[in-house]
């Protein structure tokens, strides 16, 4: 399944160092059902997230998003929640790889992460790296994916691209 190259949705905002233990607590790692993982996504930091999230929504966070364990269940639970993109000041490296590998688009942009507020509506073009804040009319130009990552995403994930 290839990802779409645009996204549109409203923002759920989080702080720095959002670790994979709060994204999907280990007590749920005995399952890899996407629906079940989604039903516990962000549970230990925002109990209402699973009720508030709508398809297409965007997570915007601070530094070092996804730090901690290598559990791929973390990006899977975010993607299965309907989140179309995660924008952060920076990402922990294993989470970054995992997100790309399962086809969850992520954008590293300190400026966008700082200026975008909770509840705002965004439109994102992954081909150009342009983020448009529909609520404030602000635009952020970010680095588009490098060629080899675009290839992985176009093929629908790392394994399909091999």
């Amino acid at each position: 399944m290839a990802i779409r190259f645009e996204a549109r949705g409203s923002v759920h905002k989080f702080g720095d160092n959002i670790d994979t233990d709060v994204i999907i607590p280990a007590r749920y790692l005995n399952s890899f059902s996407e629906a079940e993982l989604a039903s516990h996504c962000m549970e230990d930091i925002d109990k209402e997230f699973k009720n508030n999230v709508k398809p297409g929504d965007v997570i915007v966070a601070g530094k070092n998003f996804g730090c901690g364990s290598s559990r791929e269940h973390a990006p899977i639970s975010i993607k299965a929640s309907g989140i179309s993109c995660v924008i952060a000041e920076s990402f922990a490296r294993i989470f970054y790889r995992n997100a790309i590998n399962i086809g969850l688009p992520i954008i590293e942009s300190a400026e966008a992460a700082k200026r975008i507020a909770a509840g705002e509506e965004l439109e994102i073009d992954f081909k150009t790296g342009k983020i448009k804040n529909l609520s404030t009319n602000e635009e952020f130009l970010t680095e588009p994916f490098p060629e080899f990552i675009r290839k992985i995403i176009e093929k629908g994930g790392l394994l399909a691209s091999l």
Binding site: S70, I94, N98, N101, I102, G157, L162
Partner: peptide
């Protein structure tokens, strides 16, 4: 290794690093 603490083996002078399950699957294949 599909475990973040795979970096342990650097103690022995190896390059070792944690990855996710998809990277491990690709590595296994």
């Amino acid at each position: 290794g599909a475990d973040s603490h795979t970096c342990t083996y650097g103690a022995l002078g190896a390059f070792s690093t944690g990855v996710g399950s998809t990277d491990a699957a690709a590595g296994i294949a």
